[in-house]
Amino acid sequence: MSAHEDDPILDVRDLRVWYGTGGDPVRAVDGVSFQIGRGETLGLVGESGCGKSTLGRGVLGLLPDAAAVTGSVRFDGRELVGAPAAEVRDLRGPELGLIFQEPMTRLDPLQTIEAHFREALNTHRPELGKEEVRRRSLEALAGMGIPRTRFGQYPHEFSGGMRQRIMIALALVLEPKVLVADEPTTALDVIVEAQILGILADLRRNFDTAILLVTHNLGIVAEACNRVAVMYAGEIVEEGDARELFAEPAHPYTRELLRATISLETTGLNYIPGAPPSLIDPPPACRFHPRCPSAMRVCADLHPIEVRAPAGQRVSCWLHGPEGQIPAGGREPLERREFAEAEEA
């Protein structure tokens, strides 16, 4: 279909990230697959605690030692899961960049902006001379609208929006091919949010950078992403073209998420009853079935199988079949008492 499927720069298959907590592991990411092509932006949405930030870090190999990672993350054909730590580290920065949710604390308070840039460039481009390092840094900062006079200043002398732009400049000065943006605008006001989204859009257009945009804000996805993946309880439940998916959501969770979005036309607030499930002991079969308004009997018994929805997206939901796999009587509505149980849990 589109270019990304022939030659994805980032190809994640059946990725699992489990945190050992002594007893049962926390299944933060549980069998996730997606691809991103060059110059493409994939939005990753879901509620808080669904594992989307873990997924973003897992791509960069930035997880704590206690995390067990299985599956495959291929960057430009190179396998990162199980690769030596030093090898993955060398990719972080010049190939895989990361920008964070909370810009206020991401810069070392004891070091100038200049020192941050010098460290990043000296690490990955040791051949560059002092003047060249300075020139590139100032250029990256200028691109983010940070004047050169502030190069020698310390992080506390900048506002939150400026710090986020500095963080982005710091990521971009290394010219990464893939940028993971973990809720980059959540902590910022709407004006700065628009600026940052504009910057990301320029990046995609001008440098063909692939972006994984992690967010819980569907408005941002609609504005900034080509494709969107919806994550629920460690799994991707639906993934496809952003426009089509929003026009015709196939998974009940996506539908409910869209219904819960607030706009000027909103007259009442919609929410999804219940809370995101525990990732230590997630509900059996379809993880959304305790909260799902369209739950059927089969949803509580069997894990859904990924199918193509009519609008073209991938979706894991029994509503869309495959018909042959649903046992007799599986389409009967699920009785609600289980929902009450799950809510209490």
Binding site: F100, P109, T123
Partner: peptide, 25 residues
């Protein structure tokens, strides 16, 4: 610290992360 994770995310070596960022702070 957040800035330590951020430095790791830029591929800075663990040795440098510890000495330049974690230890000084």
């Amino acid at each position: 610290g957040d800035y330590v994770e951020a430095a790791r995310a830029r591929g800075v070596s663990e040795r440098r992360v510890v000495i330049n960022h974690a230890f000084r702070n």
